[in-house]
Write a protein that binds this DNA or RNA. Structure first.
Lengths: 185, 185
DNA sequence: ACCTGAACACCGTTCAAGT
DNA sequence: ACCTGAACACCGTTCAAGT
């Protein structure tokens, strides 16, 4: 019986991933129906729409957060920051709904506890990158990761159907110029 | 008869302004009901929800756009830009729904023509401010107003129930530092 | 324990019917 | 010309009933 429940849960996540990729506004009901489970079964596993979306993208968020460490090992810290920011916006453009979740998380984690699942790893990675840049003297000291995440909001809310990459790069460049110490620029 | 239609239109806008201030997600149906008109009457005047919201805030958007010119007459251009940005975020925090409209407009005006009503005056004011800063040599030449608007997205999506002013000021400071030419900083 | 789907209270939008 | 409100196809969520 319990294995049945677990299979349902996994089936829901599977369908949700595909459905959200196809349509950012895919409904809970339609996901349940396509997964072949009752609506209430979905609710048993995921009490709110946001919980489902966050769980669907949990692995992706973890991956991108973990990428920060790897990028720092490969490149100078400022380049690592730029590469990471571009990577994060890439995820937000591809995986529908993730952009909104990140944007919501950037709104200030005081807003809702639900955000924490997306917020914690992302702000952690961002803190890591900023700390490394600060230690290398390429970013002004005392920058709040929350402020930087808020400044990145635009990266999560671009039009996925446009050619967003050039604009993302320009926004990241603008951001980096703001972070760099006046003297070193 | 036609005067009756005009009165209905004004009554709808009146009620909508109040309803949106009280609840950002106030429904079209509830606004029509409270205005004492049929649902289809509201649709006759405003074909989509966005059209109604934009029309409600049209005056506000005009006002804030016009403020750019006045601020430029009063202050040095860079200070005028800062003051204007803060003023715009103040509007976005107060008038519910305006923040989303501005955020949508910043998404790139290619997305929807509907945005134009909010987009045109705002990007015009922003262009004016940037041009003045550029002429004074306090902002790098060739900055695209669209890029700056996108970088400002975070200002429109803060939590209105939090103490957002300090964070807005820090974001604006970060943005300005990115706009300033390296040598002058 | 876990699942089901009808049912509830909404939403935006349309349309036949009124004056 | 302009207005009306029932009706449609949805939405998220709940809950009594099943196994």
């Amino acid at each position: 019986m319990r294995s049945n429940a677990r299979r349902n849960r996994e089936r829901i996540l599977e369908v949700a991933l595909e459905a959200l990729a196809a349509d950012a506004g895919a409904s809970i009901n339609s996901i349940a129906k396509e997964a072949g489970v009752g609506i209430a079964t979905l609710y048993r596993h995921f009490p709110t729409r946001e919980a489902l979306v966050l769980e669907v993208y949990r692995l992706d968020v973890r991956q991108v957060a973990d990428a920060a460490e790897r990028l720092l090992a490969e490149k100078p810290p400022l380049e690592a920051f730029e590469a990471w920011a571009l990577r994060l916006s890439k995820y937000a453009m591809t995986k529908h709904g993730l952009g909104d979740a990140l944007s919501e998380a950037a709104r200030g984690h005081a807003a809702k506890m639900d955000d924490h699942e997306a917020y914690v790893p992302v702000i952690g990675a961002l803190g890591l990158l900023l700390r490394a840049c600060e230690d290398a003297g390429v970013v002004r000291p005392g920058i709040d990761p929350d402020d930087v995440l808020l400044a990145m909001t635009g990266l999560f809310r671009m039009n996925p159907r446009s050619r967003w990459q050039p604009q993302a790069k320009r926004l990241i460049d603008l951001l980096v110029r703001g972070l760099v110490p006046p003297a070193t620029a």
